[in-house]
Amino acid sequence: MAALTRDDVAHLCGLARIAATDTELDRLSGQLGVILDAVAGAGEVAPADVPPMSHPLPLTNVTRPDVLRPGLTPEQALAGAPASEQQRFRVPRILEQD
């Protein structure tokens, strides 16, 4: 396994939408390298014919009758929003300016 470089961590922070500072990147890169070394062993254990297990119990699709049930009111749904307007979540602009 390749070690994680500081640039890798910066890239991953971008993917994870975390605006890490330079100091944080320095600290996290070192720590993540140690953690990765500790867990890398899991990659070489299982024979190829072992099936992966995604879930502890067998999953079957669950259905229910299509009937109305009470849900949140608009006020409840918006109660924790950082900003709202006209019964909607108010968000920053989503497009870059041209």
Binding site: E24, L28, L32
Partner: peptide
């Protein structure tokens, strides 16, 4: 942008272990 706000919020709102 929403994306910049999201990234700034997650940096300020999450602790080190969560970020790791």
């Amino acid at each position: 942008t929403a994306e910049q706000v999201m990234a700034a919020t997650r940096d300020a709102g999450f602790g080190d272990e969560v970020k790791r």
